[in-house]
Design a protein around this nucleic acid. Structure first.
Lengths: 225, 225, 225, 225
DNA sequence: GATGAATGAGCTTTCATTCAT
DNA sequence: TATGAATGAAAGCTCATTCAT
């Protein structure tokens, strides 16, 4: 048995025991991916407790036995899934950051807009919900999520900020902290309220406005003047 | 065909049917409170799905039947609990705001510090996790939480900001948005990372530093000069 | 607000979704039959509400999980059982009708006797009790019971009556109504009283007497003279 | 404790222990009637298992404690109720029989019609369902029902038949059996089918037709010619 | 006598996991 | 390796009955 259903304390999933990518042959990987695809649909819709292994098996088109050939238990499947999903979600945000032939304010506004839109996507929103909800049970998960999603965004932006500071366009002591502030400011109003399922204007115009204010605020805080 | 346990759509709990603050007699209230206390311990530790009604009964020292005499179903108990908890959690934050004979920067720094400390408390942290996780299933919950916790903090701060702007100490177009930005900035680094269970310096000094930076940032954005 | 266990209205079990007589493989059918056998014992003894799924599982020698692998819910198991039982119960009655080289009165007396004996069997009696008791909750059940049991008997007898009328041995306007009257007359005294658990002579002789009177009555009502 | 919830064998309620009518003071009787009225509504709508003591208490406007002051257990309350209800239900049927200044056929047709209408009433129908369903568990109940309802009707009609036979209008060997046959014939088609919740024409015309056929049939079987 | 809060066994149903084929 | 039938613990919830007030 892998795990008790309702663990009294922490539910530790040692991700180091996951079959790592390099040692898997192709056929195995294909089936594994098939399972992960099915799992993604369900976990991101219904959460961890709301998804049953039978559902995953059906959705993925494999038997329950096969499921357990590839993943030792539900928690491990979940971990593997979040690992896979987190990686791809915020990619377009920091790709945006690299297109940096524009002035600071404009770039930041575009990044802010991309960030807001990404965070509002149903998948991302659900991912955030799940990670925050299950972070205590799956501490490694949050770590993975941070490293592959938020963390990457922050360090990418921090690098960009340091670069612009070097050029004299910004004046920044701690680029990482500044980047973190920037991402927090992005979440003002729309993202934050949407997380609480509160009614809020999520129109294009509203998003652009928050993005603009965020960019302007950042420039006020860290601009060269 | 057969009754589904997990409804596909929303699980609406009409909180207006909760025994409200009418004149419940003392005995009734005492037992009710006893149940809520037990429920708090468990729900705030293990989340909604992770807590069973049997556990709550045992923890509260009552029988399952008694549980259901006071609350129609698990969802309603949960709702009532969150309602009760949310109310008390952020109270000290906005009480801090009213002690306003100090200069802006100092007041804001104290508010930021109180906010950070509150959000870092295990209960608050768990409350945030649960609300975000279950907001889809319990839309009214998030609403309550917002109205009694975050919402109150924001509008209290917004009022203070408007007041200081009237005095000429701040220059602010949209006091509510400014307040929302302030609270987002409070969550930079420590709170945010703690939510993801990432290692982060949560020392007094670290908290004071983030509070100071937050206050300074706000003043840069909205100060009279 | 919360999910009610007992719906106020009808409990519809769409029997068309029951695994029908398709080509179920042998193993599946064997286990299914094993469950139905256990269910028959209990439901026919204790009725629908008086039988629990745990009891059925124990009686059938399977786990509760297995029960639910074969039947979606208690109502469906019950429906499937009644469907299976109803079919076999009255078969020997209408088989009796086909042996028709005898004169009318003798044939009818034999049919009446078979009918009375069948209706007095503990299983049939209990089946009648259950169907009548649960007809409101399971309208399709009564329908099935009628179509496979009483209905078949009536239409078989009605055909026989029409045939004899064509031969000039009977004079009948409405063969179906005549058949219905015949079956009601069969239930006079012994069957009726037994249904109410009243003391009544159920001896062979008594049965033969009622059968004879029934046959004679029918001939008086519909005989050629 | 009065009775186990799910009795393994028979559920005997010794009705001789019911507080008999003469020894009860007025106040007590009033409350008792109040309870029985509430119980009638529920038991006749939802059956024995489908009715809870809490519901009865609420419907009757008394506390559960009071319920148990007047009736030792659910089974006894149910017994007392059926006893009370059965008595009143078929009264109008045999009252019809006494108005006997008409010719046989007409009287019988009126009695048949009254009988059919009575049996089709929702209360009577439900009473029949309940008695038949619970007869095994409550053997005394069915006895009571027979003695106060069906039995009275039969013996009243049998007396009338004997009287008319003495007048030479009928030729009957066994008036009781003839009466039983008459009541069975009344149940042909409409009543029988309605018991199985099958669709059937329950119009005034249809009822009159069955009543007429029943009367004619009886006259054919037992008329003076 | 009347109340209704409290009890706890029992109900239907779900689901992670195993294992014979 | 893949299957899916089988398991059984545990879930949410009900209800006849008791008893302190």
């Amino acid at each position: 048995m892998c795990l008790r259903r309702r663990p009294p304390g922490q539910l530790l999933v040692n991700t180091s025991t996951l079959p790592s990518d390099q040692t898997l042959n192709a056929a195995c990987t294909a089936k594994r991916q098939q399972i992960l695809d099915g799992a993604a649909t369900l976990f991101l819709h219904n959460g961890y407790e709301g998804t049953s292994m039978s559902q995953v098996a059906r959705e993925a088109g494999v038997s329950k036995g096969t499921l357990y050939n590839y993943f030792d238990c539900k928690a491990q499947l979940f971990s593997a899934l979040i690992e896979a999903v987190a990686e791809t979600k915020l990619r377009n945000v920091y790709e945006r950051i690299h297109s940096d032939d524009l002035d600071c304010a404009t770039t930041l506004q575009r990044v802010a807009e991309a960030m807001i839109r990404t965070l509002l996507q149903p998948d991302s929103m659900m991912l955030y919900r799940i990670i925050v909800a299950e972070a205590r049970k799956f501490p490694l998960l949050a770590d993975i999520f941070w490293q592959r999603a938020f963390g990457v965004s922050i360090s990418t932006l921090a690098d960009w900020i340091a670069n612009r500071a070097a050029r004299g366009e910004l004046v920044v002591d701690d680029p990482v902290f500044a980047a973190e502030q920037f991402f927090m400011l992005c979440q003002t109003r729309i993202v934050q309220r949407h997380r609480f399922e509160l009614p809020v204007d999520k129109s294009d115009a509203a998003i652009k406005t928050v993005a603009r204010i965020t960019s302007e605020s950042f420039m006020k805080l860290n601009g060269a003047h």
